[in-house]
Design a binder for these strands. Structure first.
Lengths: 247, 247
DNA sequence: ATACACCACTTGTTTAAACAAGTCAATCTG
DNA sequence: CAGATTGACTTGTTTAAACAAGTGGTGTAT
């Protein structure tokens, strides 16, 4: 249970939107009304609403109000993005997941690795390859580089479980930001070997640079997804100054 | 030139980060210092910083400060996402773009179209197919459904130019929110016919639901991209309550 | 009847202040 | 010397107030 007021208001409004208490296409109660209901300041209500805007639940327009634009997401296959992650999808749909460690080695970042990952040349790294399975089918081939000095005691056993639970709960690391790039690339021999690709001759590739609270990038991961189960959802809000982000 | 203070501060800080005035990996001046420099309130500085966080330029941590985590983006090929759009990329790299209208028809949303797009059954729609070319090469096949009642006078000539300039400047429509889904799908006959796909047997598909300030979805577009030039960038920030969005 | 001014409402921006909470180093205490 | 305490910093949350700006209806004057 989050204790910040704006998070509670956000969760309450979100729940009402999802369950249809506020009709789709209509205006939510005005900020003043919500202030009365939640007995808080206008800023706090506005903060909750602005997060709903970011998540694509509502839309504001000056002079009119806050409009409910909720549409339930399609619940087929694996959905990533701002919405939910690998393990969460599996838990929700009751599917079984497993992770297999293909290899775990140590190396030092050379020029090539540095260019690909963004680690400085000379950084000591773990090179970790894993396969994620869902319901027995291999669907993601992960290749990670991890800073040794952030997790000196990494073992295959740890890598087989949840790396993030280890980093957060065991090492007390706080993960903050993650920069992602999505591309589509031709399959490699490793893809063919570890994934069940059928006729596809490309994979969906998500490259991830993950930062901890120190501001140091401690992980670079390239996730190669079987196309048939890959889905990424996103929400773009038109900003004041910039006329971009829409084709 | 945007006139809001927080936008100016945001732009100033962003420019300093990109040009290296603030060293990467180090802390920015504290909020109090910036208040002095920009002679504004703390809230205004904080708003500018929070947008830099959202865009992946900096990272905050309580008790320590604001850390610069900027990394220049790779400037190869077509980059979309929160960063920049089709035409902007072309303008920046000096490439030439063109749009060809393949077909423009009117139709009414049946059950299938409604399920795919989210338009209510019975909505009168334009069905528009276009090909985007960059430097003479066809790289995106667009198929759009557009509400007739939002743009009754749409013609092939208009569709050949920038649809958004027409909607915004001619019709005074304000575009606010866009919900996107990225998937990878097998090529169709139309893909093969209109795009230069080479060996690839799949395309990167971006499905877009676009809303205006009335809260009505007026456009659904499916953009089918040649894989070799497709790139989507994103930035995920770990939020307080939710332990998701990272695999 | 049309056009205009006005008013009551909405969201958007900015300021000021207070307190909570995390970090880090210097200092005090055992 | 080791450990705890303090204090000066940082960012995080919340409140209150004022004004700007956009929307839509009402009423008046033409």
């Amino acid at each position: 249970m989050p204790r910040e007021k704006f998070t509670q208001i956000y969760a309450t409004l979100k729940e009402r939107i999802e369950s249809g208490v506020y009709p789709v296409g209509q205006l939510l109660p005005s900020e003043n009304t919500l202030i009365g209901e939640f007995s808080c300041s206008r800023n706090t209500v506005r903060r909750a609403i602005s997060e709903l805007v970011r998540d694509g639940y509502v839309q504001t327009s000056q002079g009119k109000g806050v409009c409910n634009i909720f549409q339930p997401i399609e619940r087929s296959s694996y959905t990533m993005g701002t919405i939910e992650s690998f393990r969460e999808t599996a838990r929700r749909t009751g599917q079984h997941t497993a992770t297999r460690v293909v290899s775990l080695e140590r190396c030092v970042a050379g020029v090539n690795i540095s260019l690909q990952t963004g680690f400085p040349v000379g950084t000591e790294l773990f090179s970790l390859s894993r396969v994620h399975e869902m319901d027995g089918k291999p669907i993601i081939l992960n290749h990670s580089y991890l800073r040794v000095d952030c997790m000196p005691d990494l073992t295959e056993e740890i890598a087989q479980g949840s790396l993030y639970r280890y980093l957060e709960e065991e090492l007390g690391m706080v993960i903050v930001t993650s920069k992602r790039t999505i591309t589509v690339e031709p399959v490699t021999g490793a893809d063919r070997k570890w994934l069940d690709l059928g006729e596809y001759n490309c994979v969906a590739v998500v490259s991830n640079q993950v930062y901890n609270s120190q501001g140091v990038m401690f992980e670079y991961t390239q996730s190669r997804h079987v196309p048939s189960i890959f889905r990424f959802q996103d929400n773009a809000v038109r900003r004041a100054g910039a006329r971009n982000s829409l084709v």
